[in-house]
Nucleic acid binder design. Sequence first.
DNA 1: GCCTAATCGAGACGGTACGTCATGTCTTTAG
DNA 2: CTAAAGACATGACGTACCGTCTCGATTAGGC
Lengths: 182, 182, 182, 182
Amino acid sequence: MLRAADDLLVERGFAALTMEGIAQRAGVAKQTIYRWWKSKVDILLDTLSEDAREALAWQPGEDDPEEGLKRHLRRVADFFEEPAGQVMRALLGHAQLDEETAASLRAGFLREQRERDVAGLRALLARGDGPGVDERTADRLVDLLLGPLYHRVLVCGEPVDEELVNTTARLVVTLANDAPGL
Amino acid sequence: MLRAADDLLVERGFAALTMEGIAQRAGVAKQTIYRWWKSKVDILLDTLSEDAREALAWQPGEDDPEEGLKRHLRRVADFFEEPAGQVMRALLGHAQLDEETAASLRAGFLREQRERDVAGLRALLARGDGPGVDERTADRLVDLLLGPLYHRVLVCGEPVDEELVNTTARLVVTLANDAPGL
Amino acid sequence: MLRAADDLLVERGFAALTMEGIAQRAGVAKQTIYRWWKSKVDILLDTLSEDAREALAWQPGEDDPEEGLKRHLRRVADFFEEPAGQVMRALLGHAQLDEETAASLRAGFLREQRERDVAGLRALLARGDGPGVDERTADRLVDLLLGPLYHRVLVCGEPVDEELVNTTARLVVTLANDAPGL
Amino acid sequence: MLRAADDLLVERGFAALTMEGIAQRAGVAKQTIYRWWKSKVDILLDTLSEDAREALAWQPGEDDPEEGLKRHLRRVADFFEEPAGQVMRALLGHAQLDEETAASLRAGFLREQRERDVAGLRALLARGDGPGVDERTADRLVDLLLGPLYHRVLVCGEPVDEELVNTTARLVVTLANDAPGL
DNA sequence: GCCTAATCGAGACGGTACGTCATGTCTTTAG
DNA sequence: CTAAAGACATGACGTACCGTCTCGATTAGGC
């Protein structure tokens, strides 16, 4: 059923993603779906957890912090082009329209991802020359790190280009090394 | 009718904002609404144009670039707390779910606002010590300037704090003065 | 406008006969139609008066009563095949659905036509060998004279054949000559 | 739902008989009605089949043909005063306005009723002194038998009086006994 | 190996909103 | 000053999904 929901979202968009449609596509009765999820948003939250966790994971590497950040940001940029990225866009979008979706999304996937991002960022910066950053500082840096990419994708609706990745990465490294001034 | 739509959105949320509801609230026939707008999204696009233009305008000032940026970012942050900001959140959200909404929003309000942002940013930076930035550079800077705020609001669902405003403003000024390395 | 209404009725049927349609077809504003008639039924009543009076008139002749009746009944049968007959069918039909239509139709056209029928029948029978019939008797005979034809057309929806015309005519003449037993 | 439709027709007339009204009166969703019938006419056709079959049935009796005919015609006359008769009037009326209604009505109820009428008439005449009539002749007689009553009710909008019943009955018996001259 | 019980497909049900159509009234505009 | 053009409030249309609810049929598991 997750697969059916996922496919329909990508094929026809969120508006055409109905419980009846998913049921028919999955060859299942509506009631059976309601047994496990209480809405189509709930289904998407599940598919997101399955698919996005790995795609947004911080991969280990031997390079310096700036290079590592670039690598990760490119992964994030690519993620938005994939089906799982479409699901995330849809959920982030729906969270703007519905408080309950927002709460579920933020209490679940987004909170966990934030933790992974903070940890990943700290680990990466620890490999550099500087003193590294504490958890609170890393948390602050995440908005600066991801914000420009999300803005480009969600607000402008354009793909993230290399220049934005590079500038953002360089900038965050600079800030991190200059942490006291943050 | 714009007022009725606006009120209902803020009071009850996007899902409960129906054409029938707007019609009833405005004391107007559904047909009359359809005569002028083809969907509730269309109505919101109109209210956005009316209300958000001024709220997101770059106000003149005598202060230096960094101070000016902070002032503007605080206005942006405040905007998201107002009704007009709710409308914008809703439209940005719906744009993630519906290609047509995305196209309308970006071809209209967002494009114009982007132009105002680029012009405002350039004007502000021109008041500083540095050489200022050309249009293309300013355009690139806008993602970095606004991205963190939008991320905080749309993704995290939290209010923009003073610290984020200050850091972002300082960072963009630094980058601008260091433009060749952008 | 009568012409426009008439044409539309025949072309597309009663359901598709709307005030808006008539106005458009006649190149006239709706309001102008409402100035003269209060409904589409009212318009049809007018076209009926214009067209049906002559088609259902009793034509003079030199033949005997039975022949004369046959002639007249054939005219009635033919009338139902013409556009004016369609109007009459529509109005009689609508009169079953709407008391007001029924009242207008019966107070106007049908009452006058009934008078013409009674007079026509009496004149015809006066040419025969028998003693003729008085007005009340003729009035009673009219249901027997026209009923079978109307039944065939309105209820069965089939055309009136020669046999029905002949039998009905013969029968009414017989009855008329046997008036005391009526 | 048949009951709700029936009641509303009698109470408020055909024009005020709406799918929404029926749904509300029956405490049922519109969609449920559309699941089973495709229009209000379809519903009325069903109520007619249920109610009119018996009211228009030919009842057995021991009397002679003329008396039997009178009995039956009086039943027909009474039928038009009942709710089921209102339904029939409405359907016959609407059949004049709409080809599809006409086709449904004639292919269904009217065809069956015609068969019952032919059979009933033949059975009655077989009880008389004469030779009886064959099926084709009986079919021709039905227009003459029912036409006057229908004319009085549908066209004149007046109740059927005893005189019309008696005259019509006598006349059909006479004709039947004189069948060769038909 | 059978019978009971739970599960699941199918889809009917009472609802709500959709977007469209025609109504009859009204205002505005052009000749 | 009239009449076209058409905006307006109203209300029904027929459709799509919603979330809940019965139905049988089909499995499985406990005896």
